[in-house]
Computed example of a mutant assay.
Amino acid sequence: MESEGTEVSRKRMKPAVEEERGSVRDEAALQIAEKEETEIGVMGSEEMELNITHIFERIERFTNLVSELLESGRTMFKELSNEFEERLIAIHKEEMEKWQEEIKELRLLDASNEEAVAILQNARYLFQNSHLDS
């Protein structure tokens, strides 16, 4: 029973969708037709056509220039991005090496301090024993 209701609503919606698609097609066809009529109906003098041709050439050159600028901009940003990434990685590596060296020096200092503490404790022990013997 529910499936029949669903089918009915689908059938009701389908013509609306087709009408919408049809109106879009009709509108596009109308615009194309108007453009063709405008181009054909407004045929001017040769001088006017030449001026229009020059404008189209300028449009083409400008479009090519914009395209080239976009491409060079993309290339530049890629190069800058790569350089930035490489430099950032190099800075990180340098800092890590510095901190590793710092850790190494601290461990050497700690070992030296431990050795000095051991020597001082031995000296104290010997000093206390020599006082007790006297």
Results as ranks from 00 to 15, higher is better:
residue 3 S to K: 15
residue 4 E to I: 12
residue 8 V to I: 13
residue 9 S to Y: 10
residue 13 M to V: 10
residue 14 K to Q: 09
residue 15 P to Y: 02
residue 17 V to G: 04
residue 18 E to W: 03
residue 19 E to R: 11
residue 19 E to A: 11
residue 23 S to Q: 04
residue 24 V to T: 12
residue 25 R to M: 04
residue 26 D to T: 09
residue 28 A to P: 00
residue 38 T to S: 10
residue 39 E to M: 06
residue 40 I to P: 00
residue 40 I to V: 14
residue 41 G to W: 00
residue 41 G to I: 02
residue 41 G to F: 01
residue 42 V to A: 07
residue 43 M to I: 15
residue 45 S to I: 04
residue 46 E to S: 12
residue 49 E to Y: 02
residue 51 N to P: 02
residue 52 I to Q: 12
residue 55 I to A: 11
residue 56 F to D: 13
residue 56 F to G: 06
residue 56 F to I: 05
residue 57 E to I: 14
residue 58 R to K: 10
residue 60 E to P: 01
residue 60 E to A: 05
residue 62 F to H: 07
residue 70 L to P: 01
residue 70 L to E: 15
residue 71 E to W: 01
residue 73 G to L: 12
residue 74 R to L: 14
residue 74 R to P: 01
residue 77 F to M: 08
residue 81 S to M: 04
residue 85 E to V: 10
residue 85 E to L: 10
residue 85 E to N: 15
residue 89 I to K: 13
residue 91 I to M: 07
residue 93 K to W: 01
residue 94 E to Y: 02
residue 95 E to R: 09
residue 95 E to G: 02
residue 96 M to V: 15
residue 97 E to V: 06
residue 98 K to L: 09
residue 101 E to G: 00
residue 106 L to H: 03
residue 108 L to W: 00
residue 109 L to Y: 02
residue 113 N to W: 01
residue 116 A to F: 14
residue 118 A to N: 06
residue 122 N to I: 14
residue 127 F to L: 14
residue 132 L to P: 00
residue 132 L to W: 02
residue 134 S to H: 09
residue 134 S to F: 04
